[in-house]
Design a protein around this nucleic acid. Sequence first.
RNA 1: CCAGAGGUGGCGGAGUGGCCAAUCGCAAUAGACUGUAAAUCUAUCGGGGCAACCCUACGGGGGUUCGAAUCCCUCCCUCUGGA
Length: 360
Amino acid sequence: MTPTQFETLDGVKLPYPLFFPDATRAVVKALDNTDIESTQTPGILVNTLHLHMSPGADVIKKQGGVRKFMDWHGAIISDSGGFQVMSIAKNVGGKVNDQGVTFQLPNQPKSKLTPELSIKIQLALKTDLMVVLDDFTPPGASLEEARATVERTILWAKQCREAFDTYAPKTGKKPYLIGVVQGGDHLELRAECTKRLVEIGFDGLGYGGWPMNDRGDFNYDVPRVIREHSPENYILYGLGVGKPQEVVRLVKEGWSVFDCVLPTRDARHKRLYVYNAKTIDGIDLDEEKFYSYYTPDKEKYYRDDSPVSTACDCILCTRYSKSYLAHLFRIGDMTAGRLATIHNLRFYSIMMEKLRGLFE
RNA sequence: CCAGAGGUGGCGGAGUGGCCAAUCGCAAUAGACUGUAAAUCUAUCGGGGCAACCCUACGGGGGUUCGAAUCCCUCCCUCUGGA
């Protein structure tokens, strides 16, 4: 049986599937909590490494966890910093070895992360779901390179499991602990990695990072293989997944948790998602093209007093016109990014509501 | 009327004899963005062949020169100060 509900540390139960927008540094860019709540977003994701660097786990621990720190009432999950192993340590500055990772960004203090420290920080953050530190397999990695990252990922996964069992509270609800499958495009390696992680034992498995092939197409073989080798009751989590159609398809294939920067980043970058249907009831996620991109600052919208979408009940669509939004983007006001982000998050939450039927 | 300053591509604004179809910024158009180094980045941006080419272009007209947005003459217009 695929799990049907996600339980927070406070005992709040949320129905799957769940999409958590990224609040990497304990803030969804351009929004405050009342904005996020208005989009009916059930939870958010924060990042271990970023919060470790600022304000520091001690600051947040002292205040009782991120939830209290930022006064967020929904679910809150954390990423380990594993993705930054690739995006920062391997690309910009830093070192990776079996002991852990050091990160060095220009004009920033050096920062270090080990599997144990990542878990300790996440426990201090008091998130509802946490992820093991993993060694990212870069896109296009050879079998040999991929195997090396898999071995290190397994090693770290064991250490994370041990750290979790040692330091997690002995009583009460514990956070979910998620292992991460690496292995790149090598399916047999993905399968092996999955099996070995299951052997160690987790509440679920995640994978992601850069799930596209060379042509930029989403590779659905990888999640399929992971699913085939995972126990029925595992939470399957698409880390950093994905575009709307990708989320829809993975939900249909049994994946239940997602986080992604796309809706929020795209919003700030003037890409809004708009359902092709005229009303919310009319939305059909089974249609091949169920949505379109809307670029808000085009000249042709300067005088358009209609709403961005009639198949949306967000603040932007119920209150403001295309013309007003175009104006806000044109003059570069922050409110443009805010309204666009609210809209895109509502787009995703509507999508997840529609997908809920598949889990009942 | 006199004295200064100036008129450059949709706009702002460089360029003062050839390397200028003309730096750059804005606007416009197209694209990218997937466990956030990102309110970012990339490309195009006079017309046509869409390359090595040709045409129309730097207020109008005329001239000097092998060659002018750049020099000279003249006209028109704008701004500032003075009668």
